[in-house]
Amino acid sequence: MDQTELLNRCRQGDELAWEMLVRQQQGRVCAMIYSYLGDREETLDVAQEIFVRLYRKLDQCADAARFGPWLATIVRHACLDHLRLRKARPPRQDIPAAEMTSLAASGPTPEEQWYRTSRQRLVHRALQDLSEINREVILLKDIQGLPLEQVASVLEVPLGTVKSRVSRARIELARAIIALGGGPGGDGEATVPGAAS
C-alpha cells in the first residue's frame, strides 16, 4: 500500500489504516528505542507513548517521503528524554550483590531473544560501548538505512559531521566487538571482505 495513501487514511481516522501503520512501524520503532535504552520493558513503555504521540501528531507530517526521518526524530527525542529521566531517578530496586549472582540466568535474557543471532546480540552489546554520536550514526545510517542528509537532519548536526563520523563509527564498533571477543578468533568468521577478488 502506498505510504501517502496510508497516512491520509490514518489522518481521516480510519482505524484499519492506523492498525496497519502500527504493525508496519512497530518493529522499527522498538528496535530504535532498544538501541538507546537497552531494556525490554522500558522499550515497550516508551514505544507505546511514541505511538500515542504519533497518533496525535500525524497532521504535522504533511510529506509522506519525510515520514521516516520525522518518526526517527520523535523516537530519538523520546529516548533522550527518557534517558534524562532515568538519570534523575534512583534505581528501581536495590538487590545485594551476593543475590545478583543467584538471579542471573544462564541462557539469553528476554532482551537478547529479540535478536535472532548471537552476532546481533554481540553487536547490540558493543553498541552500548560506543560514544553517543557514533552509536546514533550507526543506528540511523547502517541499521535503519537513512540517507546521510536525513541522518544529519535527525541528529541536528551538519552533514559534514555525519559524513566524517560514518567510517569512524564503524571502526569503533568493530573494535568494540573485537574487545568483546567477537573477532576472527571468536564469534566472527575469519574472512576478509574482498579477499577472494
Partner: peptide
Amino acid sequence: VVLGWLQGELPAMATI
C-alpha cells in the same frame, strides 16, 4: 573481518 560481517548484520537489526 568484523566490518565484513557487520555489512549483513546491521540492516538485519532494523526491526524487532
